[in-house]
Computed example of a mutant assay.
Amino acid sequence: MTALPTLPPAVLAEELTHLALCWRLVRRDGAALGFTSHDRPLLVNGLRHESRPGMSPSAVVLGDGVTVDDMEVAGALSAGALTATDLLAGRWDGARLDLFLVDWRNPGTGRQWLAEGTLGDVAVGTGADAGFMAELIGPGAALAASVVEICSPECRAELGDARCRVDLRRRERLTSVTAALPDRVQLAGIIAADHVQGELAVLSGPQAGLIRRILAEDTGWLLLDEPLALAVGTRVHVGEGCDKRFATCRDRFGNARNFRGEPHVPGADLLTRYAV
């Protein structure tokens, strides 16, 4: 999908405005939705933007400063598109959102960019006219992150990333659910303990597309970070995890040379240690 040019200044300077606010939401799995404040759907850059006059952002302030550019977006829920069930289940967590203006007379000519970012915390209302309120985390939020790593006994890399370099292709499995409770599952043909701190992605059934992190193992059960209602036989994709300890990196993965931590540096508890 090619980027649209910026709207000509003459369109923005017209006394009688023909501008419509548009939203473009793209989930992490690639599913995309478009909405517009106009009273009829608009086709913008190949994506149909459905009419949602109730969707509105908080004040949009554009500038050249370096402050963190977070904002809030609010809108109405739709039975066919953006539903409370999907929002609360986490399907839209981390989705990319683009907010822009177009000339509704000819929406394919260009757009005026207003804001972009990812969806953060989402709150869903109740009742017949329920809506949602979501935090939009802009690119400037990265400026608040520390760029200097802190010395730690645990590894600061993520399993399989460019610094860890462990090949995950041999450590991922397609399998099925053999037993399930709201906060835990049992899977066929895996070593449960090896998947602690890994991820479980649902591939079939009504929960398809949801991803949960595996927090712990308990006598063959994998404990999940959030409840997930799965039926026996549901197909899932599960990846191994790492507890970020040096012994695990060395003994299980054979990857000690890429360990990104300081396991042998004395910590703040050095003076409180005593011989047993």
Rank of each mutant, 00 (worst) to 15 (best):
P139T: 08
T178G: 09
E240H: 02
E14D: 06
H18F: 09
A208H: 15
L270H: 14
I190G: 02
V177C: 14
P8D: 13
A81V: 15
L97S: 01
L136W: 02
R24L: 05
Q207I: 09
A162H: 10
L19T: 07
P182W: 04
E15A: 13
R105V: 05
A89G: 14
P139G: 06
C151I: 12
Q112F: 09
G261D: 10
Q112R: 10
A95N: 13
M1E: 03
F100E: 03
A32W: 02
V196F: 09
V26P: 01
R245A: 12
R96G: 03
D129G: 12
L119C: 06
N255T: 08
V124D: 12
P9Q: 03
G117W: 04
I190V: 07
V60Q: 06
P9T: 01
H18K: 13
R96K: 10
Q112L: 05
R250K: 12
G131H: 07
A201W: 09
R235V: 08
L47W: 01
G120V: 02
V11W: 13
L62P: 04
P53T: 04
N255I: 00
S78A: 11
L222G: 07
E135W: 02
A216T: 08
K244Q: 14
H49S: 02
T83Y: 03
D39R: 08
L25K: 12
L99G: 00
A115D: 00
V238P: 08
N258P: 00
P41K: 07
C242R: 05
A179G: 04
G110F: 01
G90T: 13
C155D: 07
G117S: 06
C249D: 04
V148M: 07
E217C: 10
T17K: 09
R245I: 07
E240G: 03
V26Y: 01
I191W: 05
G65I: 00
C22D: 13
W92A: 12
F35Y: 15
E217M: 10
S37M: 01
P263M: 06
S176C: 11
R173W: 03
S152L: 07
D218M: 03
I137Y: 04
A95F: 03
D218K: 11
D225W: 07
R91N: 14
H264L: 11
A20H: 10
Y274D: 06
G110P: 03
